[in-house]
Design a protein around this nucleic acid. Structure first.
Lengths: 215, 215, 215, 215
DNA sequence: TATGAATGAGGGTTCATTCAT
DNA sequence: TATGAATGAACCCTCATTCAT
């Protein structure tokens, strides 16, 4: 008789946990080295299994890649939607909260490497890029758009061009993620995310020019 | 007898142009597919030479990569330095000019792919990343830093944290370049650079909040 | 206590039938695809068991192959011996009966694929080929030889070279079996065995030339 | 200046000879071991080249297989056609000549293994089997058919069922080829082709029964 | 200098075999 | 006895690199 906590046999429990373990290992190496330069031997070793085991769960290296992207990012976006629907402060505070929460959710996990990975491999996997664009980028932009439109409607924000403003707002966030997996490992460009984030929000909300100089 | 413009025979000129042609072909394919996924066969075909010819000019695929990076970006930075030293308007105008000129110099050439390439491959080529960091990133940041410090000293700019402000300023520029070689090919995210650039500068110089709401 | 027909419980019977079921499944696939191209996964699935179960009955894929050959053909030869010892007509009638019976015994079962299988794999399994030669081919040839010698001794048959005549007599029988598992599946060469057999016997017993032309 | 015998450089001559060398090596091993059990490493070694060289001439193992079959047998059939059109003796003599010539053309070369190979692999390569059926089997049967019909029309042959008679005539020839590459290597069944062929023709032309016993 | 045939180490993938359950 | 997850050796195929011409 098994203990009360787990009635499923160890082997079974293992089998259910495997895909997630493999995806995590694959993500780490894909982000670090790129898709083509990552050997499945290394992914397997990194996950503590043999190479053949990978093929019990993913039909090919390419399918593994797709799964890494598709199963990695959906939960994050869901959190964003939820936050937007529950928040009831003004648009400026919402924007600040959104950006800060993003760091807590993504910036600290290894999911943070997905944007860099996607940027590197989009050209080689058009279908995955399409999926990423529709399910991640468009949804993420939608979140920011909602905040901007709310702020503009309430008179809190200037009537900027929303479409391009979204990009301008997201770019520093993305760059911070991207650089972490590019140049940081070779000792360069070690920014402190806290300061960076604060400056970004400050610049956004207050503008670069002092008030008196504005026409 | 040759004309006065060129005294070297055509064959000679071809020979001297070869390395540059090979680098251009390699850059295109490295940017499009990544280093590991690019075959030297294809680089050679793209440059209109045979595969063996590549090895007359570059000792290995890795050397070719280094040359692509190192010989690609130095001219651009030189132009930036020169512009900074000659400009005599105020800091805001200088910043605007600098960002716009960057687009004319880089955004329209195939050198624009280098940042994406470097981001993708930095982890696999630490020495190249180091070189890039020191010779491109630090010099580029230096340009922006000079402008910011000039603006803050003159009282035109608020006293922001310069180090992180530099990143916030550069990020949208970089993202625009990066996305062009990542998601654009699969029809997604086709921003108009003009509008994007204008919004970026506008947001930077004026801030997002309307003046009346500022404390 | 069970009924008189079967004293063993159903489960027991199943257990005893297993090896035969596995051999039948293996024979089918070995004949269809060849030894090397047959996966044990497929054999197991074809027999309705799991892959591991195969190893409870056969130590390796090669042992399974040997068992397929060795247990498949012995019963057939025994019938031939028995027929020869009981028959009391003339040699011509015996030869005709023997060939026709062979079709009823082998031609209609899936054992018919064994000759094709053996031909394909003899080179890879010399010991099995040796076994097959000694226990199948030599015994089969012995049957025909006995009939020929009986016919020649009785003056019914011409005094042909017995050794090669045996091959000439057996070849059409073998080819018919072989082709059924080779070219027939792709729609080609669908002979009617009945006609084929009749023509074969007719040619054998009467000769191709009309009687008047014979010297 | 090169010598007068060969104006093409050695490298060039080699390149043109390569495909035939590779096909010969592949045929040998495919016949000996079967398609699946043959390693391309071994084919390459057998041809005295490296593994990669195979891929300069054949896109895949399967394409190599197709080429082995398709380029191997066409010349043989052409000879048969020519022989038929030029011969002017009676049908019996033509049949004898045809069968004997077949041995000289095929039986002594390594092309003799193709029938065994095709029989073994037909199930795994339906398109190749189709090709073989249409271009080899049908053409070969056509040759025999022409002889039989000529002999029957002239009253030299009995009016047998031509379709099945063709198979009965060809079967011993095929079996001899097949067995050479199956059981012979393991010391069994070493027939002397000369005797075998003579007996086959004798039986065919004279019939098994002595003239006096015929009804 | 330029070519492209040849090489062979390396990586993705398969599958016979093992073993914990 | 039966299962099927896990293993890892082996094989097909690729491609950076070499070298004879």
């Amino acid at each position: 008789m098994k203990n009360t906590i787990s009635e499923v046999p160890a082997r079974q429990r293992r089998k259910e946990a495997r895909p997630a373990e493999l995806l995590a290992a694959a993500l780490d190496l894909f982000v670090e080295r790129g898709f083509a330069a990552t050997k499945l031997d290394d992914v397997a070793a990194h996950a503590g299994v043999s190479k053949g085991t990978l093929y019990l769960y993913f039909a090919s290296k390419e399918e593994l890649f797709k799964a890494v992207i598709q199963q990695g990012i959906l939960p994050v976006l869901d959190q964003g939607d939820e936050m937007l629907s529950q928040f009831d402060g003004d648009a400026g505070a919402l924007l600040e909260t959104l950006l800060k929460r993003f760091w807590e959710l993504v910036g600290s996990t290894h999911l943070a490497g997905i944007p860099k990975l996607m940027i590197s491999e989009a050209g080689n996997f058009p279908e995955v890029a399409q999926y990423y664009y529709e399910n991640v980028i468009l949804r993420g932009r939608g979140l920011i758009r909602a905040v901007l439109e709310r702020g503009i409607a309430s008179g809190q924000f200037r009537a900027v061009d929303v479409d391009s403003a979204i990009d301008v707002i997201l770019a520093p966030q993305m760059m911070l993620l991207i650089l972490r997996y590019s140049l940081t490992p070779c000792n360069c460009g070690k920014q402190d995310p806290e300061t960076y984030l604060r400056t970004h929000i400050d610049l956004l909300l207050n503008g670069l020019l002092v008030a008196e100089k504005k026409k």
